[in-house]
Design a protein around this nucleic acid. Structure first.
Lengths: 341, 341
DNA sequence: CTGTTAGCGCCTTCAC
DNA sequence: GTGAAGGCGCTAACAG
């Protein structure tokens, strides 16, 4: 390491200009109480001397890190990439830094990451919990200290802060109703981990749609999976072995729906004639699979932006803390084959 | 803000134990010079009093932020999500924090982000440059101060540090050769911005394959686009209007290839009979489109992990700095229809 | 409008 | 093995 040149500090600038360090500090921070002329001089000399702010010192003094933390279960999904992009945009525009970590679906890591964020004195935290998170005690310390903790997508309701999410129940209800209106009577639901609001709500919506359309729900028609491509294939094989094929499937994500569709098609099943599908997420693949897959559209980037904005507005005192959860828009997109056969 | 309870500091612990703050500090950091017994006492009292390290102070003192910075052009792509996930994993395991920002393909923002990272005293920086980055002067300050700057994927060669990437030339050469071996004679290349190593190298590989197979290259057969879905459609329309259709297309990414294929198929073109395609990236969609798309596979997560590991090993002094660029493995995956027709 | 003073909480000499 | 002292660079009172 060749850190030859010593760092230029405000004292160096002060000495050069024969003024005090405080004035330099004020000048650099565009403090209104400092003369315009002095300010200009300070800034130009700072630049000329190659001064750069030492955020480390500034942070210690002001007891603020100017940093927002994010903890998500996984970073490598389409949806989460959109969310993160949205968060980054707002956070960066707001002049904050963004610290990111993934819990890899283990609560243990979520707890450790939270502690690290806490020690780093993040000014606020945005969280989407793991499948296995069954309580939120590990965030209590932050909340007690007045550090905002805002949940999005996979949420835990807590009284202090609003949560940002979509209406999973209604989206699932609409998706299922669509299948029923198209003639499906024997419906299956492919779902994910049933400890998370996201998937339990989708399941509830599915069930309620059946009930409201006088279709009897059989517990065996709920297939709990990890929603992966592999699970889609498993589900297809499972269905093919059934005495009676389903005629409608609502999947809690697109990835699993598509791989299931592909496996069924390989076995000669016609979609949607034999089995109709609706997915969830509006992933790119829904417009590539033939026939195109109807799905629930909602914007990860919007979710990220809203979550970040709520947080930052609060930190800036620009906005009062919203009293209630924020429900973002989601919409059923109805698709069909884009090819003429 | 209700920060009622004051922060517990090492002085509070010291007072309670009637020892000095230095000893507490040493005890907390498992310093060997401190008695085992004292250490235990310190740590247990610390826990009991709810002490947490103030990284802000620690950072200032040690002039280290314990943080790695990442600057990428965009966060919301499949590939970049994988890269970030890989980086996060290694960085987190190494006990560092991860600050992330996106330059949104503008060099201006890249420069600002770099300065922010610099001010925040990141211990190292991982960068994939924008399309418009035509020099890397803005990283000089970091490098001069001994802060490692490591480029990946979209790289600029500089003498100080290795770059992490794949052999784009060879991958493109292989992809094109495959098309030629399958019978293509009139080949087109869909490429991206020609200021970036990634796309110029792929183009060079394409061209060289033609030359080596005695096929004359016509500049008109290079289509420079933004590689988006929309561009894929435009390219399809362009081709359909040509006096003579191409019979082979090598696209610099999958997304554009697939949308081009879809548009052509809508117009009645048979793939691969009329036109054969090869893409790049091994995106999920390549296994959904019919026929499945042959593509170049390489792992974003691996790239992220390797880049992060090189950096962290260096910071830990575990490893000497690699002298040369690191070329990661990439591979042509040959695919065809997965359906029986 | 500017200067003086006093830390933020920690860690690292240097003593003993 | 432990303590005392000092300072990382900045900014927030408090004066004037």
């Amino acid at each position: 390491m060749n850190k030859k040149e010593k760092e230029v500090t405000i004292y160096d600038i002060a000495k050069k200009l024969n003024i005090s360090a405080s004035t330099v500090s004020r000048g650099l921070n565009n403090d209104v109480t400092v003369k315009k002329e002095t300010q200009k001089k300070v800034q130009s000399v700072a630049k000329q001397m190659g001064y750069r702010l030492n955020s480390l010192a500034s942070n210690l003094r002001s007891k603020k890190s100017n940093t927002i933390g994010v903890i998500v279960p996984r970073l490598n999904s389409n949806f989460m990439a959109d969310v993160i992009a949205g968060i980054e945009k707002v956070v960066n525009e707001g002049g904050y830094n963004l610290i990111i970590s993934q819990s890899l679906e283990t609560m243990e890591k979520e707890i450790i990451n939270t502690e690290t964020m806490f020690n780093n004195r993040v000014d606020g935290l945005l969280v989407s919990t793991t499948y296995n998170t069954n309580n939120i005690d590990h965030f209590e310390a932050l909340i007690k200290k007045g550090v905002p903790v805002i949940f999005f997508d996979r949420v835990f309701d807590h009284t202090e802060w609003p949560t940002i999410r979509i209406d999973n129940f209604k989206a699932a209800y609409d998706a299922t109703s669509h299948l029923i209106k198209q003639g499906s009577k024997n419906l299956f639901h492919i779902s994910g981990n049933q400890t998370t609001n996201v998937y339990t709500d989708r399941f509830k919506g599915f069930k309620q749609a059946l009930i409201d359309h006088h279709i009897i729900f059989d517990e065996a028609n709920l297939l709990v999976t990890d929603l992966s491509t592999g699970s889609g294939e498993d589900v297809a094989n499972y269905m093919l072995a059934l005495p009676k094929l389903p005629d409608g499937v609502f999947s809690a994500n697109d990835q699993c729906a598509v791989s299931c569709m592909q496996s069924l098609q390989k076995a000669g099943i016609k979609i949607p004639k034999d089995i109709a599908f609706v997915g969830f997420n509006n992933d790119t693949i829904t417009k590539v699979i033939e026939p195109n897959l109807s799905t629930i559209d909602y914007k990860g980037s919007e979710m990220g932006e809203v979550a970040a904005r709520v947080l930052i507005n609060h930190l800036n005192g620009t906005d009062i803390k919203p009293a209630h959860s924020i429900i973002l828009r989601s919409e059923l997109l109805i698709r069909e084959s884009s090819l003429r056969n």
